[in-house]
Simulated scan of single mutants.
Amino acid sequence: MGNFSLDPGQLARCAELRDLARRHLAPLAEKGEPGRVNRPLVAELGRLGLLERLFTSGALDLCLMRESLAQVSTEAETALALQGLGAHPVHAYGTRAQRTRWLPEVRAGRAVAAFALTEPGAGSDAAALALRATATDIAPLEGRGELRDQPRRDPHPPPPPQSWLLNGEKTWISNAPEADFYTVFARTGAPGTRAGGVTAFLVPADRPGLTGTPLDMLSPHPIGTLAFDDVPVTTDDVLGEPGGGFRVAMNTLNLFRPSVGAFALGMAQAALDATLAHTARREAFGGPLKDLQTVAHQVADMALRVESARLMVYAAASAYDEGADGVPRRAAMAKLLATETAQHVVDTAVQLHGARALRRGHLLEHLYREVRAPRIYEGASEVQRAVIARELYKEAAP
């Protein structure tokens, strides 16, 4: 494992990303409509080659991208991350036909992806999915006689593709209902089989029976519900293997959980930078705020927490890239520490700025709204603690 100090090339790429975000992405983000997919922003991410990097980079580079973008534009960061989260299962587990059809469109920013795991009764308990995939029969073709000069039929033809009908609901799905395709996790096994009975499907948005409804959320990006009413899928739509969907979901989350921490770090760093500037120039009690010991100590504590969380995020991402042991535990620790840290740092920054930070349009007002959600999605903080404890006991077992 490395010492997690970034080399000059990595530092230069981070600075370049922040510059691209300021010049190209933030202006498009400001023109977006809250609660709607900002397709010009997604297309610009594609034009700049950032979406391509989602599929050619490791976990550490993903973290650096998300942290750098989040320091300048949380909307741009989120648009990038959601493309990665929704399309990574296709990249990692998809068939050649699935990858050929969808990944070039995702890379170019022409197709919007979504990761559809959460349900009304299965949020933190991802193995408790209720969306059903009920197997159906495909009737064989009949009434076609053979002509004598035709080649003989294969006595052992490949079996026809298995088909299912999806019925149920997904909720709190980012980019729903506006995505072009969804990575959907459904129960194909018998009730009670939990993780082993889940299959991942690639479901295009135009499948019959698939509808969606937007939800009015605090987040500026779209979040909605999806309703499945006899939505047809076949083995051609399966990602990975039938019954292997829980593995697809968990491996995707193990990759993206540290980078959720990186997103939080970007927001925390932006809040810290704003606080340093504000307390250096704001006059109170006969001098700048930074000369007050109580303020200086709070700023020092903010910086300490941010740097500590950053080291853990980089360590978890490097462990993933190196195939090291303990990736689920490290990923959970990174997400937990970084998101909880960001919440504290942004809240402290608001306190040190006073009422001006709560005015609509202020950077900290924006961060104060944005920083709350990462403590919930992709596994709430309580779930991360459960994962950490489970993995620790597993590692300690003789």
Rank of each mutant, 00 (worst) to 15 (best):
N3D: 15
Q10T: 10
G32M: 08
R53Y: 03
F55T: 00
L60K: 12
L60I: 05
R66T: 10
T78L: 03
A79V: 10
G86P: 07
T95I: 10
A97W: 08
Q98D: 06
T100D: 14
T100A: 15
R101Q: 13
V106E: 12
A111K: 15
A114C: 00
T118N: 03
D125L: 14
A130I: 02
A139E: 15
P140S: 15
L147T: 12
L147E: 10
P155C: 02
H156L: 12
H156G: 13
P158T: 14
W172T: 10
W172V: 07
N175V: 12
G189Q: 03
R194A: 14
F201D: 04
L202S: 11
G224Y: 14
T225S: 09
D236M: 09
V248E: 13
A249N: 08
N254W: 10
A271L: 10
R281W: 13
R281N: 15
G286Q: 00
V295T: 08
D301A: 06
E307G: 13
S308W: 01
S308V: 07
S308D: 09
A315T: 11
A316S: 08
E322I: 11
G323F: 00
A332V: 09
L337D: 07
T341E: 00
R356G: 00
R359H: 00
Y368D: 11
S381R: 13
R390E: 08
